[in-house]
Amino acid sequence: MADNHHRIDYVELNVASIPAAKEFFGRAFAWTFMDYGPDYCEFRDGRLTGGFAHGPVQPGGPLVILYSDDLGTTLDTVVAAGGRISKPIFGFPGGRRFHFLDVDGYEWAVWTHE
């Protein structure tokens, strides 16, 4: 079996506007993008790839969690990019995190070690 068996390989989200999603995630996290026509865009965070598909927004899917070396600065960049904080920074065993809603209403989280 391959080393990637049963590991997250790709995340895909329907978005109302691919340009708005690119603007938000580019500004908030410095992600890069590859367009595949007007209705699909791949994103790259430097380690993981995923896609934005133009279509009906489906909030309430799985919670995707990003890691940050500096949680406070990341929260500030999310807000500056237009994200809405849905759960302010809170502690949990092993770290701290916050949740936010992106421009399409999807909830995401960002965490860091204690």
Rank of each mutant, 00 (worst) to 15 (best):
M1S: 15
A2E: 15
N4M: 09
N4Q: 11
H5I: 15
H6E: 12
Y10C: 01
V11M: 02
V11D: 01
L13D: 03
N14L: 04
N14T: 12
N14D: 10
N14C: 10
V15D: 06
A16M: 01
A16H: 09
S17K: 00
S17W: 00
I18D: 11
I18R: 07
A20L: 01
A20E: 11
E23Y: 09
F24G: 14
F24W: 12
F25A: 01
F25W: 06
G26L: 07
G26Q: 06
A28P: 11
F29K: 03
F29V: 10
W31M: 10
W31L: 06
W31K: 08
T32W: 03
F33A: 07
F33T: 07
F33N: 04
D35R: 00
Y36N: 00
G37E: 10
G37H: 10
P38G: 14
P38T: 10
P38L: 04
D39I: 04
E42I: 14
R44Q: 03
R47S: 15
R47E: 15
G50Q: 04
H54G: 11
G55W: 08
G55K: 10
V57W: 05
P59R: 05
G60N: 06
G61T: 08
L63F: 02
L63Y: 02
V64L: 00
V64I: 13
I65E: 01
I65L: 01
L66D: 05
Y67I: 14
Y67G: 14
D70L: 00
L71N: 08
L71H: 09
L71M: 09
G72C: 08
T74F: 07
D76V: 00
T77V: 06
V78H: 08
A80H: 04
A81N: 07
G82A: 10
G82R: 04
G83L: 00
G83R: 00
I85N: 12
S86Q: 03
K87H: 12
P88Q: 13
P88M: 07
I89Q: 04
I89E: 06
G91H: 13
G91W: 05
P93C: 00
G94M: 12
G95A: 09
G95N: 11
R96S: 10
R97E: 15
R97Y: 11
R97K: 15
R97C: 13
R97I: 07
F100E: 08
F100W: 03
L101H: 14
V103D: 10
V103G: 13
V103I: 14
G105K: 05
G105S: 05
G105W: 02
Y106I: 06
Y106A: 05
Y106P: 03
E107L: 10
W108N: 06
A109W: 04
A109N: 03
V110D: 04
V110Q: 02
W111S: 13
T112E: 01
T112S: 02
T112N: 00
E114D: 13
E114R: 15
